[in-house]
Design a protein around this nucleic acid. Structure first.
Length: 222
DNA sequence: AAGTGATCATAG
DNA sequence: CTATGATCACTT
């Protein structure tokens, strides 16, 4: 029995706050879900579990989790100090038909307009079921954060447009980086080649780097 | 230990 | 394959 989608921001935040301090095993039990021994083969398990508990719309549509509220849900694994353990995936990167695409039109821009961060204990020595949910945080980028994101996005997209996608590494970008996003390194998708024609490359995705998300969480709890 | 590149499951 | 949800695991 799926949970109904929250009808207001207030209701969503109320539900999110009610999860704080609760273990994943408890939340899984409530939803009739089994807890995996580890996340090696269940990498998206925590995210799916929280989506279910909060009543997010299921599916893999390229839309916000709470479309009617314009809010994107992101769980983020943290250590005991509250520091993120992993980078945060944002979206796949368009590698073709990007002529004239602006930052304001980009999927990254829209996805990060309003994000509900749900920190989850993520250290590997803690059994998955015993990991607890932290205090939720509704975030929208500040002017400064937005400027950093825009700058990185524009630099990365310019390289893609110039046919240099295969030369871009995760080192590019201060807060936003481009990394492989595929089943494996042999997966191919169309991209722009050095000569301007269509070629094949490993699909890429945009990720938020750890120091950036760490600041977001830190600012909220200071 | 941090950071980058690779990978896993599932829905459509 | 694309897009959703991310974490794994090797290199530095």
């Amino acid at each position: 029995m799926p949970k109904p989608s929250p009808q207001s921001l207030t209701e969503l935040m109320q539900r999110a706050h009610d999860m704080a301090g609760v273990s994943l095993a408890d939340i899984a039990f409530e939803n009739g879900i089994n807890v995996p021994q580890d996340l090696k083969r269940d990498k998206g398990w925590v995210g799916q579990l929280i989506e279910m508990e909060l009543g997010a719309i299921a599916g893999s549509r390229p839309e916000p989790d709470f479309i009617h509220l314009g809010i994107e849900l992101k769980t983020i694994p943290i250590d005991q100090k509250g520091k993120p353990l992993e980078t945060t995936y944002v979206t796949v990167a368009p590698l073709t038909d990007i002529h004239g695409l602006t930052w304001e039109q980009s999927v990254v821009f829209h996805k990060l307009q309003s994000v509900l961060w749900v920190p989850i204990e993520g250290e590997r020595h803690i059994p998955v079921g015993q990991r607890r949910v932290g205090t939720p945080l509704l975030w929208s980028p500040s002017t400064a954060e937005m400027a950093l994101l825009k700058q990185d996005w524009e630099e990365i997209m310019e390289k893609i447009a110039l046919g240099k996608v295969d030369n871009i590494t995760a080192r590019h970008g201060e807060v936003l980086q481009l990394r492989p996003k595929a089943a494996n390194s042999h997966t191919l998708t169309e991209s722009i080649g050095p000569d301007g024609t269509i070629q094949l490359s490993n699909p890429r995705g945009f990720y938020l780097k750890i120091p950036f998300t760490q600041q977001i969480l830190r600012n909220a709890f200071l």
